[in-house]
Amino acid sequence: MILVDADACPVKPEITEVAIRRNMQAIFVAGSFLRLTTHPLIKLYVAGEGFDAADDAIAEVARPGTVTVTADILLAERVIKAGGAALDPRGREFTERSIGETVATRDLMAELRPGMEGMTGGQGGGQRPFGPRDRAAFKNALDRILTRIARG
Rank of each mutant, 00 (worst) to 15 (best):
Ser98Thr: 09
Arg22Thr: 07
Gly131Arg: 13
Ala137Asn: 05
Gly124Pro: 01
Gly115Met: 13
Phe51Cys: 09
Ala30Pro: 15
Ile58Tyr: 02
Ala57Met: 13
Phe138Tyr: 02
Lys12His: 08
Gly83His: 03
Ala8Ile: 01
Ala141Pro: 01
Arg21Gly: 13
Gly48Asn: 01
Asn23Pro: 01
Gly131Lys: 14
Asp134Thr: 10
Val103Pro: 06
Arg92Thr: 08
Ile58Arg: 02
Asp72Gln: 01
Val61Leu: 14
Glu17Gln: 10
Ile58Val: 11
Ser32Ala: 13
Gly91Met: 08
Ala53Cys: 03
Ala62Ile: 06
Ala53Lys: 05
Ala19Trp: 03
Ala137Trp: 00
Pro40Ile: 10
Gly121Lys: 08
Arg106Gln: 10
Gln127Gly: 15
Pro129Phe: 03
Glu77Asp: 09
Gly121Asn: 03
Ile149Lys: 08
Ala137Phe: 08
Ala86Thr: 00
Thr68Asn: 07
Leu87Met: 02
Gly100Met: 11
Asp5Met: 11
Leu36Ile: 07
Asp55Tyr: 03
Thr38Phe: 12
Thr147Gly: 13
Leu108His: 01
Leu142Met: 02
Arg113Met: 15
Asp56Val: 11
Gly124Trp: 00
Thr70Ala: 15
Leu36Ala: 07
Leu146Trp: 00
Arg135Lys: 13
Thr38Trp: 12
Pro132Ile: 06
Glu101Arg: 05
Arg133Trp: 05
Gly50Glu: 02
Pro132Met: 15
Gly125Val: 06
Gly124Ala: 11
Arg63Leu: 06
Met119Ile: 05
Pro114Ile: 10
Val29Trp: 02
Gly31Ser: 15
Lys139His: 04
Met1Ser: 01
Ile58Leu: 13
Gly91Val: 01
Thr38Pro: 05
Phe28Asn: 10
Ala76Tyr: 04
Ala85Gln: 07
Asp55His: 07
Gly131Ala: 15
Asp7Ser: 04
Thr147Phe: 07
Ala85Ser: 12
Ile20His: 12
Ile42Ala: 02
Glu93Thr: 08
Tyr45Val: 10
Arg21Pro: 12
Glu49Gly: 14
Lys12Pro: 01
Ala141Trp: 04
Ile145Tyr: 04
Asp72Glu: 09
